[in-house]
Measured scan of single mutants.
Amino acid sequence: MQFKLIINGKTLKGEITLEAVDAAEAEKKFKQYANDNGIDGEWTYDDATKTFTVTE
């Protein structure tokens, strides 16, 4: 399945997509990506659109 991450950071904004088996795997990958890029914020997930959002 394809999942999307919307980044609303203080210095980094944008979207990325990835393939994952389920939402838990996608969340783990997205949070690792955010951590690697210094993004720390409030996370939400919309199951209907398979979209994660992180807002700093």
Rank of each mutant, 00 (worst) to 15 (best):
Met1Pro: 13
Met1Lys: 13
Gln2Asn: 09
Gln2His: 13
Phe3Trp: 15
Phe3Ala: 01
Phe3Arg: 00
Phe3Leu: 02
Phe3Ile: 02
Phe3Asp: 00
Lys4Asn: 09
Lys4Leu: 12
Lys4Arg: 06
Leu5Ala: 03
Leu5Ser: 01
Ile7Glu: 01
Ile7Asp: 01
Gly9Met: 11
Gly9Glu: 03
Lys10Arg: 08
Lys10Thr: 06
Lys10Leu: 04
Lys10Ala: 13
Lys10Ile: 08
Lys10Pro: 03
Thr11Trp: 06
Thr11Arg: 06
Thr11Ile: 10
Thr11Asn: 10
Leu12Glu: 07
Leu12Arg: 08
Leu12Cys: 04
Leu12Phe: 07
Lys13Ile: 09
Lys13Asp: 05
Lys13Cys: 04
Lys13Ser: 06
Lys13His: 13
Gly14Ser: 10
Gly14Trp: 05
Glu15Gln: 10
Glu15Val: 06
Ile16Lys: 10
Thr17Gln: 07
Thr17Trp: 15
Thr17Met: 11
Leu18Pro: 01
Leu18Phe: 13
Glu19Gln: 13
Glu19Asp: 06
Glu19Ala: 08
Glu19Trp: 07
Ala20Ser: 07
Val21Thr: 09
Val21Trp: 08
Val21Leu: 07
Asp22Lys: 03
Asp22Trp: 02
Ala23Gly: 09
Ala23Val: 13
Ala24Phe: 10
Ala24Asn: 05
Ala26Val: 03
Ala26Trp: 00
Ala26Met: 02
Glu27Ser: 12
Lys28Asp: 06
Lys28Asn: 09
Lys29Pro: 01
Phe30Asn: 00
Phe30Thr: 02
Lys31Met: 09
Lys31Arg: 07
Gln32Leu: 14
Gln32Phe: 12
Tyr33Asn: 02
Tyr33Phe: 05
Tyr33His: 07
Tyr33Lys: 03
Ala34His: 01
Ala34Ser: 07
Ala34Asn: 02
Ala34Cys: 03
Asn35Val: 15
Asn35Asp: 14
Asn35Thr: 11
Asp36Thr: 14
Asp36Phe: 10
Asp36Met: 13
Asn37Ile: 12
Ile39Gln: 02
Ile39Asp: 01
Asp40Asn: 15
Asp40Thr: 04
Asp40Glu: 05
Glu42Tyr: 11
Glu42Ile: 09
Glu42Gln: 13
Trp43Leu: 04
Trp43Cys: 02
Thr44Asp: 10
Tyr45Ile: 02
Asp46Glu: 12
Asp46His: 11
Asp46Ser: 09
Asp47His: 10
Asp47Gln: 05
Ala48Ile: 12
Ala48Gly: 10
Ala48Arg: 03
Ala48Glu: 10
Ala48Ser: 09
Thr49Trp: 05
Thr49His: 11
Thr49Pro: 02
Lys50Thr: 07
Lys50Gln: 12
Thr51Ser: 11
Thr51Lys: 04
Phe52Ile: 02
Phe52Ala: 01
Phe52Gly: 00
Phe52Trp: 07
Thr53Trp: 12
Thr53Arg: 09
Val54Arg: 00
Val54Trp: 02
Val54His: 01
Val54Thr: 02
Thr55Trp: 11
Thr55His: 08
Glu56Ser: 14
Glu56Met: 13
